[in-house]
């Protein structure tokens, strides 16, 4: 399988007043590979560097060192984002637009012809079960509905790689189930999904491979079954062990 997402010795530093050196290292020499057609879970505690990695991949933050490539193209080139779909953790969309208008706007950005855009908008709104609310402004949607609009916009260009930042965060069990179903469906269509999460059960159920990151450094990467066999414990214990959690003794 070809590698479609690759980072090599990726390093990101931020200016920080808290640190004595004046900088804080968010990512430290990150080497990562995601292959075509797999669902890749990117796990880590809060502040581990998951979102920073995504920020670099999407061109929001420029790496201090190393490099990141999507489909072999440097992430700083806008064309690298032509074949990806991105779903942020929270819904950040123009709330004065309707779902249909939002999707049409993004379709235009990708240069999708009008007829084709109409067809895709219909099928995506059907996929995320928002056909009935397509003409309502997004500001009137519930959180779950907004998250589903987000998923639809991430799919408007029929991407080969989907980058999802904690896609089930804040959703009720039904919403989580629906998102998982959509991820499974995308996988069956041959799409690559790269998603960050700290929901271990979710990762275990949908991922082909996972990577665990802590304090900007990669701690482990591989198939869940291989990692569990290697460390001889379940994923939760493995996760806690790798992030250096020491359980307090109970007297």
């Amino acid at each position: 399988m070809s590698v479609i997402l690759k980072t090599e010795k990726l390093r990101v530093e931020y200016a920080s007043r808290e640190s004595r050196s004046g900088t804080k290292v968010a990512l430290n020499g990150l080497d990562l590979e995601v292959r075509a057609g797999e669902v890749f879970g990117y796990l880590g505690p809060n502040g581990a560097g998951k979102t920073t990695t995504m920020n670099v991949l999407l061109g929001f933050v420029h790496a201090t060192g190393g490099e990141a490539r999507l489909f072999g193209v440097d992430v700083r080139e806008p064309i690298a984002r032509q074949r990806i779909g991105y779903l942020p953790e929270l819904t950040y969309y123009y709330k004065f637009l309707t779902a249909e208008e939002l999707l049409r706007f993004y379709a235009r950005i990708f240069g999708i012809p009008r007829g084709e855009a109409d067809r895709r908008i219909d099928s995506l709104l059907k996929l995320v079960e928002l056909e009935h609310a397509r003409s309502r402004p997004i500001k009137t949607y519930s959180k779950g509905m907004q998250q589903r609009v987000g998923l639809a916009q991430a799919l408007i260009n029929n991407p080969d790689l989907l980058i999802l930042d904690e896609p089930t965060s804040g959703l009720d069990p039904l919403g989580r189930m629906k998102v998982r179903e959509i991820i499974q469906r995308l996988k069956s269509e041959g799409k690559t999904v790269f998603f960050s999460s700290h929901e271990l059960g979710e990762a275990e159920s949908v991922c082909d491979r996972v990577a665990i990151i802590c304090q900007g450094e990669l701690k482990a990467v591989g198939k869940v079954s291989d990692l569990v066999a290697q460390y001889q414990c379940d994923l939760e214990k493995l996760f806690l062990k790798l992030i250096g959690y020491q359980p307090q003794g109970v007297s």
Partner: peptide, 14 residues
Amino acid sequence: ENRTIFPLLAKPVT
């Protein structure tokens, strides 16, 4: 502030 810039710049927009 509304973070609408993120989904937009995640598209091929310079």
